[in-house]
Simulated assay, not measured.
Amino acid sequence: MRLAFVASHTSVAQEARHALVERYGEVPPAEAEVIVALGGDGFMLRTLHTYRALEVPVYGMKLGQVGFLMNKYRAEDLPGRIAKAHAAVLHPLEMHTVDVAGVERKALAFNEVSLIRQSNQAAHLEVKLDGEVKLPVLVCDGVLVATPAGSTAYNLSAYGPILPLDANVLALTPISAFRPRRWRGAILPHRTEVSLRILDPGKRPVSATADFHEMRDVLRVDVRQAEGRGVSLLFDPEHNLEQRILDEQFAQD
């Protein structure tokens, strides 16, 4: 099995990478059958962004603080584990922003797109779904659009719903909504285009972030699922991503 090994910059991840290369050999990512990522969830997201165009499956092993997207680290019989692994296809979101200077930018997000106020003033946002205004004014600290894989991350911390991986839906979740007071978000069909317009960008500036790509002083943000850009993430059968998402709904901590 042709394996490529990538690791976060921590000493423990780099030492593990060296040991695995010594044991199994390695090839460049472009020539690999599987890319093995060593680190935490943040490093996994960067790996998916860096190598998604190669269309090579990624198998992660946890050597970081958070490892929801990772398997347990074990050096023994790595090719055998990968051969038995279950694939979960992650479909990213595409974020298109226009800032107050008229500059347009795009970025992808495998977890979520989030809008956050940049000042002590609450953000005032207009929310459109497929071109139809659903909330003329949302007063909040922010709002996010999360994929099923990302629904257990920032979305869960903001009291958004956990989404089954194969549900073909997205979560639209407010962050500390002040008005409408009773609005707790929505579950949307995965093909919904979400358009968020900042109503008072001069007095109430807002930033937009797709995973770790941040755009400041945005005026409008459009979010939709990126077509034809799925990435395969591999999981050990006993801890596949669908089961993890289900178990997270019954977590006790």
Rank of each mutant, 00 (worst) to 15 (best):
N120W: 02
L135C: 02
K62P: 10
S157I: 07
S119N: 09
H124V: 01
D99T: 00
L78M: 08
R52D: 04
L144T: 01
V66R: 15
L125W: 09
D130A: 14
G67T: 02
G150Q: 05
L144S: 02
L135Y: 08
V58G: 00
R74K: 12
T50G: 11
V98A: 04
L165A: 09
K134I: 00
L69H: 00
P161R: 14
A88W: 07
L172P: 03
E55V: 11
S119R: 09
Q65D: 13
V56W: 09
Y73L: 11
P92M: 02
A146R: 11
A83Y: 07
A87D: 07
G60S: 10
E132I: 11
H124N: 00
A107I: 12
S157G: 13
A122R: 12
E126I: 04
N168V: 10
A123Q: 03
M44F: 15
P136K: 07
Y51R: 10
N168Y: 11
G142Q: 03
A122T: 13
Y51S: 09
F110G: 04
V103H: 07
E126H: 04
A107V: 12
P136N: 05
L165V: 12
M95A: 09
V127E: 03
M44P: 15
V58Y: 01
H124L: 02
D166P: 03
A158Q: 03
G102A: 15
D99M: 02
P174R: 09
K134A: 02
L144N: 05
R52M: 05
Y51D: 15
R81N: 01
D77V: 01
T50K: 15
H86R: 15
Y159W: 14
V137Q: 12
V58A: 00
P148K: 14
V139T: 12
A75H: 13
K84N: 12
Y159L: 11
N111D: 00
V133R: 01
A146Y: 12
A149M: 13
G80A: 08
T97G: 02
L170E: 11
S157D: 10
H86I: 14
L129M: 09
R46K: 14
N155T: 14
V58P: 04
G102T: 15
V100Q: 10
P161G: 06
S114P: 04
G160Q: 02
T147F: 04
L165S: 05
K62F: 09
V103C: 08
A101W: 06
G142R: 04
V58S: 01
L125N: 08
H124Q: 07
S151L: 05
N71M: 06
D130H: 13
F68R: 13
D130W: 13
A153I: 12
F68Y: 07
A87Y: 02
L45C: 04
P174K: 06
K72C: 08
V143Y: 00
R81Y: 02
L156Y: 12
L138M: 15
A146L: 00
L125P: 12
A149S: 14
M70Y: 05
R81S: 05
V139E: 07
H86G: 07
E112R: 01
K134P: 02
R81M: 08
Y51P: 10
L54F: 01
G60L: 01
V139K: 14
Q121N: 08
K84I: 03
V145H: 04
